[in-house]
Nucleic acid binder design. Structure first.
Length: 270
DNA sequence: CGCACCCCCTGCCGGC
DNA sequence: TGCCGGCAGGGGGTGC
C-alpha cells in the first residue's frame, strides 16, 4: 500500500508531535511481523528520546538519543498512528509505544507484512537497501539513464526495484510512466536519454503532488493522525482500466508486467 | 540476470 | 445467503 508519498505524509504528520518526546513504555502484542519483532525491541526503544523522524525509500526512521535507529516499514496494510492514551484497542494493534506526554503511537497491520526494529546506524543500508530516492538530486536523468543500460527488464520493474530506486511502488510507477509518456513494458535498455529525462521529471511531479494531496487512500491508508489522503482522485491510470485517458479519451488498458497489474494509455504512452 | 512461482497474511469483492 | 477463488499498495526466497 504505502509508497513514498504515503510514508512521507506519515512522517510529516508525526514528526512535529513526537520529536523530543521520550518513550515511557513499549507493548509488543504480536511479534509475527516480517522478520519477526526482536525480543530486544521493547527494551531498545523504552526510555529513549525521539531525536528526529526521517524517511528512506518506504522506510520510516526515527533516530534515538542513543544513536540507534527506530525503523518501521508499513508493508501493505500497516498504519502508524498517534492518539491519546485512552484510544480504544483495535483488532491488529500489534505494537503500542507510550510517550511521556500521554499520547501513544500504535502500529496496526492486518496482514503483518510490515517490519519493526531498532537497529544500529551501521546496519541502515543492509536493512533498507541502497536505492536512490527519486526526490533526491542524485536521481538525475543521467543517473537513471545509467541504471537502464544493459537491463532487459521493463522500465516499470526497474522503477519499482527498491535496490535501484527507493520508494516507488505499483501505483506511482504506473502514474509516473503515464505522465512521462512511456509504456511500462518498454525494456529499460531501449530508453533514450530523453525518455529518462521525462521519467525523472514525471517522478518528481507525481510524487510531490501526491505528497501535497496527502497520499493515496485506496482502502486503508491513513496518515500518522488517522487522516485519509486524496491523491487517488487524481490517478490518471492506476485501477482505471477501460476508463478514458484524461488526455486523449482512449480507454486505459491493463496487463500484467512482471507479476504486477499495470495500467497505461495505448495512445499517449510509447 | 530476469522472471515465474512460491511464501508470508487478512480482507474484500464478484461470481455462482 | 454463503462459499470460493482471485486479487490487493509490501518484500524475500528458490530454481530455471
Amino acid at each position: 500500500m504505502p509508497e513514498l508519498p504515503e510514508i512521507e505524509t506519515v512522517r510529516r504528520s508525526l514528526a512535529p508531535a513526537i520529536v523530543g518526546r521520550r518513550v515511557v513504555a513499549v507493548r509488543v502484542q504480536e511479534r509475527r511481523l516480517r522478520g519477526g519483532v526482536a525480543a530486544s525491541f521493547a527494551t531498545a526503544l523504552a526510555g529513549r528520546r525521539i531525536a528526529e523522524v526521517t524517511r528512506r525509500g518506504k522506510y520510516l526512521l526515527a533516530p534515538l538519543d542513543d544513536g540507534r535507529l527506530w525503523l518501521v516499514h508499513l508493508g501493505m496494510t500497516g498504519q502508524l498512528t498517534l492518539a491519546p492514551r485512552d484510544r480504544p484497542a483495535r483488532r491488529h494493534d500489534h505494537i503500542v509505544v507510550e510517550l511521556d506526554d500521554g499520547f501513544v503511537i500504535t502500529y496496526n497491520d492486518p496482514r503483518r507484512f510490515g517490519r519493526m526494529a531498532v537497529i544500529a546506524p551501521s546496519r541502515l543500508v543492509a536493512e533498507t537497501g541502497e536505492g536512490v530516492d527519486p526526490l533526491d538530486d542524485a536521481f538525475s536523468p543521467a543517473a537513471l539513464f545509467a541504471l537502464t543500460r544493459a537491463r532487459r527488464t521493463p522500465i516499470k520493474a526497474l522503477l519499482m526495484d527498491q535496490r535501484r530506486v527507493a520508494g516507488v511502488g505499483n501505483i506511482y510507477a504506473n502514474e509516473i510512466l503515464f505522465r512521462a509518456g512511456v509504456r511500462p513494458g518498454r525494456r529499460a535498455a531501449r530508453l533514450a536519454r530523453d525518455d529518462c529525462q521525462r521519467i525523472v521529471a514525471a517522478s518528481r511531479a507525481v510524487l510531490m503532488e501526491a505528497i501535497r494531496r496527502g497520499g493515496s487512500s485506496i482502502s486503508d491508508y491513513r496518515d500518522g493522525l488517522g487522516r485519509e489522503g486524496w491523491f487517488q482522485l487524481d490517478h490518471c491510470v492506476y485501477d482505471r482500466a477501460g476508463r478514458p485517458c484524461p488526455t486523449c479519451r482512449t480507454p486505459i488498458r491493463t496487463r500484467v508486467v512482471v507479476g504486477r497489474s499495470t495500467f497505461y494509455c495505448p495512445r499517449c504512452q510509447k
